[in-house]
Computed example of a mutant assay.
Amino acid sequence: MVFLPRLKTEGSRIVDLDGNDIVLKGVNIADPEVIYRDRHRVSILDVVDRVFFNLGCKVVRIPVTPEDFYGYGYGFLHQQDLYYHRYLKPLVDYCVEVGLYAIIDMHYVDGEPLVDGNPSFGYLDKKSQAFEFWDYIAPKFKDYSNVIYDIYNEPVQPLPTDLWEGPYDWLIWKDEMAQPLVNRIRLHAPENLILVGGPNYCLEMAGAASHPVQDPVNDPPSIAYITHTYPGHDRGRRIADVLDPIVDHVPVFVSEWGFEQGADRVVHGTADEFGTELIEYVERHKLGWTAWVFDNVWTSRMVNAKWSLLGEVGPNTDDTEVNGRMGGVVKRHL
């Protein structure tokens, strides 16, 4: 077992209990239940081995899907004890064993699934499910110094004026969802670092500087703010547009970023067009990150069907392959 210090925040930094700056870099994996049931050639713990020993990650983000969106019989809320004992606890315990921080992400993706061809909004409709999720999960890992809680993966907005457009109101999100969830988690887990996103798939984050979420237990608050960024996100808005208003004021962590040439419009891109700019920004501001995603099905993929890294520089790879696949880019910057 490897002891990892608890993390907290000071000003705009994530630090350990001695005040040392901590910049965690790693990857997202697929939902552990999906790995267990659908990913041949690997087990859940095999995936941890690969991201820790082969890549050198310091943190892994674990998306826990609360509900069965697509009729596959998956989802934490359908089978809480089974999910916890079979999938999640063994994974987090193994992270403790090897010395890996683990972000438990309540992985709602607002807008999914489609209902009669239209996206299903929004986060306010999932309030009771979110409370149920954290009432179960938060106390389970409160004594784990390596565990971080990500309260809600990608909220969109209440009362949309258009199916894919605003209003994206930080104050509605904070007052109606983010603050109540943080308060609920703190009832069970007073010390774990908490990550908070924002409306429009965590792109509308400026309000975090002027109206931050309060920590009812810790002063200074053990809360950091996240963004997700992809080449086609919100008509290609870049990471500087999202983070410049907050990066010098509150702690920031980039919990999703990725690209894959030829994939769907959100993630379609290359290292030259997107990845290099992203890496330069996070390194300039000394931000931690978890790339999306160390998987061979979910895009933007980092590995192929045989779980070999995509986009590595080698004698048999060409520039197009290296530039269009993010696995090699991630490995070189971990």
Rank of each mutant, 00 (worst) to 15 (best):
N218Q: 14
G56Q: 02
P139E: 08
V322H: 02
E312S: 05
D264W: 12
I104L: 12
D244V: 08
E277W: 03
F121P: 02
L187G: 04
L181W: 11
L309H: 03
K127I: 10
Q157C: 15
K58F: 00
H233N: 13
G197I: 12
S308H: 12
R301F: 02
L163G: 03
A102Y: 01
Y108T: 10
V297Y: 10
W292N: 06
N54D: 15
E273K: 00
A189E: 04
S128F: 00
D215S: 10
S300L: 04
E283P: 05
P167M: 14
V322P: 06
S12I: 02
D46V: 11
V313P: 01
G288K: 03
L114K: 06
I226N: 09
V60K: 08
H85T: 15
V182G: 09
C95R: 11
E283S: 06
P90S: 12
I279E: 01
L163A: 04
D16W: 12
V250P: 10
F141Q: 06
I226P: 02
Y87G: 05
Q129E: 05
R186A: 10
I103V: 15
G111N: 07
V23I: 15
K58D: 05
R265K: 13
R86V: 13
N118V: 08
L17R: 14
G73R: 07
I14V: 15
P231E: 13
Y201S: 10
D248I: 04
P90C: 06
W257S: 02
V266T: 13
P32Q: 12
D116V: 01
G314S: 15
F259V: 09
S12W: 00
V247F: 03
L181M: 14
Y70T: 09
P167H: 00
E280D: 15
K142H: 11
S43I: 11
R235G: 01
N218F: 08
N296E: 10
V242H: 11
T65G: 01
A138L: 00
D169A: 09
L82K: 14
G269M: 06
G207I: 14
M302R: 00
L17H: 09
R238W: 10
A138M: 04
E321K: 03
S12G: 04
Y144T: 11
K8W: 01
A178D: 05
R6D: 00
Y149C: 05
V303S: 04
P199C: 11
W298C: 01
A178W: 06
D295P: 00
W307R: 01
G262D: 09
I279H: 02
D38N: 11
G19E: 06
F259G: 11
S255D: 13
V156Q: 08
A130G: 02
G269F: 07
F294Q: 07
I194Y: 04
R41Y: 04
